[in-house]
Amino acid sequence: MPTTAPAFSDATASDSALRRFLHGLPGVDAVGLEARAASLGTRSIKTTAKAYAIDLAISMIDLTTLEGADTPGKVRALAAKAVNPDPTDRTAPRTAAVCVYPDMAATAVAALAGSGVKVASVATAFPAGRAALDVKLADVRDAVAAGADEIDMVIDRGAFLSGHYLKVYEEILAVKAECARADGPDARLKVIFETGELSTYDNIRRASWLGMLAGADFIKTSTGKVGTNATPANTLLMLEAVRDFRAQTGVQIGVKPAGGIRTSKDAIKFLVLVNETAGEDWLDNHWFRFGASSLLNDLLMQRQKLSTGRYSGPDYVTVD
């Protein structure tokens, strides 16, 4: 059973205690935060550093399909791509995971067996999260039972925005409990805040701490289903949160920006954020992920350019 990090056990003793704790976190100045993110975005990553970053980024992708039209065929194709992203170059690293809906988890597990690529499943009535707790927990149970290695849950933004922090916290605890497996490793839990709906940076910081206190293994920006998803600024803010949390508790937590990251240039900027904010301990797909789909092909084209010296084109990467 997960428990709150001991350093902060008081913070979650009651709704009011949790509110006091979250509202006592330092504020975020929006202009300064965005300026810092933009400034790190001007880093110039070239040659060997670029090659390193591209491979690292590929290895961090949660290759995602979350469509109503998903079929086992689509999921298998994606799984094949995850294992062997560039058919012309077998040295390309595998992605970190394939991310699907719970009913596709079993298909993905079968397709990826033995590959080392993880299966992540969204759950908890993704993306809105507007369902009864029992329904959400059943969703999680299904995915875990199907063999998902990782669960991407959404928080109850309505409860968060109306100030019912303890409700959000307890829900995460409950989901975390469902991630446990008696006969194998627990599923790792990614907690999605849907930052675009939280609206303020102060809220994103509070949500980050709330998620970490509740035992999240990863904190994740967004579902990819709303207008604003991962941005350098909100990801920077979450990287600060995991950095500070580890400094205070010794517990390391991962970060996953998701949605809207489509180019290699963007991905490299995020890796710079990781490198210069949380530090190199997070430069590993155990601790940092990209929730993305089209990003992979752009990384592969850039990778081809680096190895051949020629610019590549969309016909030289696979459409899946």
């Binding site: 880093r43 110039s44 990553i45 070239k46 040659t47 060997t48 550093a49 670029k50 390193y52 970053a53 690292l56 890796l271 710079v272 490198n275 190199e280 301990d281 430069l283 590993d284």
Partner: peptide
């Protein structure tokens, strides 16, 4: 454990 992200010279 990842190797450090060394930025190559970008003059």
């Amino acid at each position: 454990m990842a190797s450090a992200f060394e930025y190559a010279p970008a003059p």
